[in-house]
């Protein structure tokens, strides 16, 4: 489109200067340019493809080099830890362990019920992605071992 004031059919020098500036800033891929500038850039390319290619070629080389440092996928361990953190119960702390020991001592709770509470808390712990420290895990295991009432079978369903 020829404008009054000296714009040539191939675009003005000012158009090409702006085009070169955008290429230096955003690279050769017009789709990565700000949306507001894309249509005008494509129109200019259409007017003089050879000149546009001359401008874009150097930037395309750099773009291609930068693409040689691709994203490295996150490790499976990280993925699992992140998923676990989404399901994390409140981390077992000293108060929780004391509550667990209390539950296991209650005659009203059958052995199975007490173990169900324990299992539930252990599952929550396992899903907490490391929120329970090793020391606390040991304390929990110790609490379970010492507080299970004598003679109660883990599979018992009735009151003892």
């Amino acid at each position: 489109m020829i404008q009054p004031g000296g714009h040539s059919e191939q675009g003005s020098d000012r158009d090409w200067d702006a085009f070169a500036m955008r290429a230096e800033t955003y690279g050769a891929d017009i789709s990565h340019w700000p949306e507001a500038h894309r249509d005008a850039a494509r129109a200019l390319i259409g007017l003089d493809p050879a000149r546009a290619e001359e401008v874009l070629a150097a930037e395309r080389s750099l773009d291609q080099l930068l693409a040689f440092a691709p994203d490295q996928p996150p490790s499976q361990a990280l993925r699992e830890a992140v998923l676990a953190s989404a399901s994390a119960k409140r981390p077992l702390i000293f108060v929780d362990i004391a509550w667990l020991r209390w539950c296991l001592r209650q005659p009203m709770l059958s052995g199975a019920a007490a173990l169900a509470v324990c299992a539930g808390l252990l599952v929550g712990t396992a899903m907490s992605g490391g929120a329970l420290t090793a020391a606390r895990q040991d304390a929990l295991a110790s609490a379970v071992q010492t507080d299970i009432p004598t003679g109660v079978e883990p599979t018992s369903t009735g009151p003892t």
């Binding site: 994203d71 990280l78 993925r79 830890a81």
Partner: peptide, 27 residues
């Protein structure tokens, strides 16, 4: 997680230049 974890990890890795630190940040 599928959608964003790779993006967060990549961002942190390129800024910090350390894969382990990047994973810590992403987490």
């Amino acid at each position: 997680v599928n959608r964003k974890l790779p993006r967060m990890t990549a961002l942190a890795r390129r800024l910090l230049g350390d894969a382990q630190e990047a994973e810590d940040v992403a987490q």
